[in-house]
Design a protein around this nucleic acid. Sequence first.
DNA 1: GATGAATGAGTATTCATTCAT
DNA 2: GATGAATGAATACTCATTCAT
Lengths: 209, 209, 209, 209
Amino acid sequence: MRKKREAGEGLAPVEKNSVFQKRQLQIVKKAAKLFTKKGYAQTTMREISKATGIDLSNLYYFIESKEEILFRVFEMIHRPESSVFEKREIMGIADPAEQLRAVIREMMRFSYIYKDEVLLLYRESKLLPKKMLKEILARESHFIRYIEAILKKGLEKKIFAIEDAAFSASMIAYELSLYPLRSWNLKGHAKEDLIRLVEQHIMQAVAAV
Amino acid sequence: MRKKREAGEGLAPVEKNSVFQKRQLQIVKKAAKLFTKKGYAQTTMREISKATGIDLSNLYYFIESKEEILFRVFEMIHRPESSVFEKREIMGIADPAEQLRAVIREMMRFSYIYKDEVLLLYRESKLLPKKMLKEILARESHFIRYIEAILKKGLEKKIFAIEDAAFSASMIAYELSLYPLRSWNLKGHAKEDLIRLVEQHIMQAVAAV
Amino acid sequence: MRKKREAGEGLAPVEKNSVFQKRQLQIVKKAAKLFTKKGYAQTTMREISKATGIDLSNLYYFIESKEEILFRVFEMIHRPESSVFEKREIMGIADPAEQLRAVIREMMRFSYIYKDEVLLLYRESKLLPKKMLKEILARESHFIRYIEAILKKGLEKKIFAIEDAAFSASMIAYELSLYPLRSWNLKGHAKEDLIRLVEQHIMQAVAAV
Amino acid sequence: MRKKREAGEGLAPVEKNSVFQKRQLQIVKKAAKLFTKKGYAQTTMREISKATGIDLSNLYYFIESKEEILFRVFEMIHRPESSVFEKREIMGIADPAEQLRAVIREMMRFSYIYKDEVLLLYRESKLLPKKMLKEILARESHFIRYIEAILKKGLEKKIFAIEDAAFSASMIAYELSLYPLRSWNLKGHAKEDLIRLVEQHIMQAVAAV
DNA sequence: GATGAATGAGTATTCATTCAT
DNA sequence: GATGAATGAATACTCATTCAT
């Protein structure tokens, strides 16, 4: 790497015409696949070029560096994830148990869609510039606190029985990554089946007797 | 022309005198730290040399390749892990609930000791030669089936109430990696505290009402 | 980790545009000179880079490895050599003596042109992948049997008088490498002069009295 | 190579006790085998150590450098070769034809014994220090001139009929290396058989009709 | 005279990135 | 906006040789 941008000085604002964006997205998606299959470091720009059909030099017309591709991969997960718990449908649910169930199902579905990217995030987050890593961790923390809030509401209503809401929230958030991180030994379960089992498991773990 | 051993064709039997072994262990341990901090690919042999104080060329007197270091890191986790559920104390416990608790505590402690190595395993298992990867997955499967057996015993005795013992076992095994994979947001919890919370969480998730 | 093609699994079909090929040829030719002067192992890629004026890394744009260069050097000799005895002019000659003379002259001229490469072949054939070595030996055997056939024809016609045609053919083929292998003590002879002398020597050795 | 002796500044005079010499010879012989099998550059000191059973460091007690081993290998051929035509039995033969036959047989036998070393000399003479190379070439020239003298004597006596005695001598000397250089396609011939055939071939090539 | 460990200088090769057309 | 070619800096690894005990 010759030039080194200050880490995480922000991606170029997603401007330019949509053809440009489409190409970029194409690159990021294909690269994501390669990254998850072979690892970030083991994937060469030439392979990305071949996979996308875009000439190596031209690649740099659409992205600034290999690192930027990785960043944009993570951006992909970011946006929709953030919206998970901003969804009116979920935020509006009054019953904490129901609300928690809704969050679980929503996130499990999300984790099915972005399985590879989530795994990538676990594996390659070391490579993120601090700022970006912080952003992601912040978002995750936000998500955890959101669950924590639900749990506390449930505690008050004596629906849930747990000792440490912060811990439980953390554990639940972790459990929701089950599929991306352990898909290799969950092949036997159909998607909706697995979602239900995870839901049951978590609900039982927090439920008051 | 470089000669290249078929990856993972078995590490040289750990022979030689103990000074040799000590050096090797020193390399593996330091490298493990570097690998977890920066990632395997991003860690150079020069860095390992610097970290261990062993001259770069001399490093190769003790290990055959960078890959071998990684293999040996994983070996470190292997051996003790296997013994976890072979321990007489645990195997002898008659009550499934008590037995499960014992396993949980044992594995949580293990995961504290080998936090870095476990994380590394999640992150860099891609780089393992197939044979070694299979071995590791087999061991993990073995562990899961062991938990499953406990769960089934508990089911019969109506101590546990779960729908799918295989799934629950899988989930529990996963939960036991909580600390290595999410230590960054568990800093607030003391070790024994966390172990207890995980134990509670899991026990509640499987317990019959 | 270095990936290593199985040695000699076939050179990339000589495609690409002619500029590319020209560069490749330039590399192979310069390298051949260096190899003959210093030996293959003693010639570094840096030297080849310097000799060709092509940047070290860029060298790898045109060839895949140092080994490939060596292979291509041998390829250079291969092609034209094969055609030697497929030449209509020679194959058409009825008189065995005249035919043998023609072959001698043809091969001697060839050995003058490819002096360095032939010497290299004697010196560095150890480094060839088995398959390639076999091919070359097969070609040589083919050539020897071709001479043998001429000798046998001459024997029948009582023009030649030798005990063992196979041996004589082998010896003649060997004698035709005189110049590449012993040029250092043949400096006193002009090319055409030497060719004539070799021709005489061989013809006398096989001629019936 | 760290230190570089002035090329060919002469080998340490073969002094020391005979145990020392025996070890040295042992090294040189085993190394010669390895050199011929794999090439000089491709043979490592470690391999020589393993092959001789002498510890790597101790090797340097008996020889000064890898190069010296090569030199000593060539020395081995030198001594006896020089004596070939100094043998009273041969020098005393009056008849040029008989004398030439004797030389041929002597040298062919020699080439059988030192097949590997002769081949090595052809292959790796590049590595010799100038001085040593000159010595060897001088010896070879000496040998050629010796043959030339025989030829000239035969010419005077009208026993031989050749145009250029110098050339013929050169060619004959070359032919006497047939076996070391082409053993791969002479496997079909028994030793004494081959010697006789070479003798016939050469004699016929120079004989007056 | 044996041995384990060191070391320095090198070697082929890789790869992200850019330049010229 | 496409393409072939260039380039610089790095990377894992090797090996002859020597040192300390």
